[in-house]
């Protein structure tokens, strides 16, 4: 247990890293929980002091006893507050992708050891979002908390402050948990469209229906190929045979369009990406089949949710080293 008078921002990252490394899942223990008596406790101490003077003036033993009891309570309470965080396991489940300038939502799973419920635990990114939860049982509890993401690319949220004042508010126990998660931040879509596209009226896909791989209609099972989506895996079959198989689906397609890097009204990279992003979203919404052309990257025309995400991912990571 670390008793520190330093505020959160004063704790150096280097020092924190040793105790609270970036990890997908963190269990709070002695090394990871910091405790100080709260301002409330200080106020109570001042009151105890006044009471003590009263006890001195009236030479009253029982007033002394109350003073002693209150001081003892403040001290013992530190343990209770500590106990309310100790053993809490916080797991980052996933950081949902978002567009730049929006909030990235982190899904957390909180669990506590048997019969050690944690009450009034506050999860907070200062100036961003705060959630208070009670973790009552061993079965994990899901919590969503958001942080604004400004730049496209990968977003790693800063350390999350996990704190509690339970049971009495006379002490604050806290930890700064770092999650080993990365979330995609897509380019910020433009405020209004430049293409003038409207929803075509019904003529789509009636003529010359081209059957392409899709995600909506089940087509069959084939052996696993690299690049197949996880959601396509056929687990039952795997359990039976020990070999991986994928389910295949088909989508009806319509005429193809290209979202092209060289065909934008902008020259600035970020603005271009924003424009392309807007186009992808529009085409997806209109259920067109479209392809994406970026320098060195070409994604052949397709449609559907998976294709959209594929394109957005390419846009988000365009020009970044760890793409």
């Amino acid at each position: 247990m670390a008793l520190l008078s330093a505020k959160r921002s004063l704790l150096p990252e280097e020092w924190l890293k040793k105790r609270l490394p970036w990890a997908r899942s963190t269990t709070l223990d002695r090394k990871r929980i910091f405790i100080i008596p709260s301002k409330t406790a200080l106020a109570l101490m001042v009151m105890v002091l006044i009471l003590f003077i009263l006890g001195v003036n009236f030479q009253n033993t029982l007033v002394y006893a109350v003073c002693a009891w209150l001081v003892a309570m403040i001290l013992i309470n530190i343990l209770h507050t500590y106990q309310n965080l100790a053993g809490l396991t916080i797991t980052a489940v996933q950081l949902e992708p978002c567009f730049a300038g929006e909030k990235a939502v982190l899904q957390l799973s909180l669990a506590c050891p048997n019969k050690q419920q944690k009450l009034a635990v506050q999860l907070e990114w200062r100036d961003e979002d705060a959630v208070q939860v009670n973790v009552l049982s061993q079965s994990p509890q899901t919590v969503f908390i958001s942080h604004s993401a400004q730049q496209r690319g990968y977003f790693t949220p800063p350390r999350l402050r996990v704190s509690t004042r339970y049971p009495t508010g006379l002490a604050i126990a806290w930890s700064l948990v770092a999650f080993d998660v990365k979330g995609l931040v897509y380019p910020k879509p433009l405020a209004h469209s430049y293409s003038g596209l409207t929803k075509p009226s019904g003529e789509v896909s009636e003529d010359g229906r081209d059957i392409a791989q899709g995600t909506s209609d089940f087509a069959g099972i084939r052996s696993y190929r690299d690049g197949d989506a996880l959601s396509q895996l056929h687990w039952k079959k795997y359990a039976q045979t020990g070999q991986l198989h994928s389910k295949t689906f088909v989508d009806p397609t319509s005429d193809e369009r290209w979202v092209d890097w060289d065909n934008t009204p902008f020259s600035d990279t970020e603005q271009r990406l924003s424009y392309l992003c807007t186009r992808v979203l529009e085409l997806h919404q209109l259920d067109y089949s479209y392809g994406l052309r970026l320098p060195q990257i070409t994604i052949s025309p397709d449609k559907g949710e998976a294709h959209k995400l594929h394109c957005l991912r390419a846009l988000a990571l365009y020009g970044l080293s760890d793409a």
Binding site: A65, A68, W69, A72, M73, H80, T168
Partner: peptide
């Protein structure tokens, strides 16, 4: 809390 404080209180 109160009972646990008792020994400390006596001290």
């Amino acid at each position: 809390i109160l009972l646990q404080s008792l020994p400390l209180m006596l001290v």
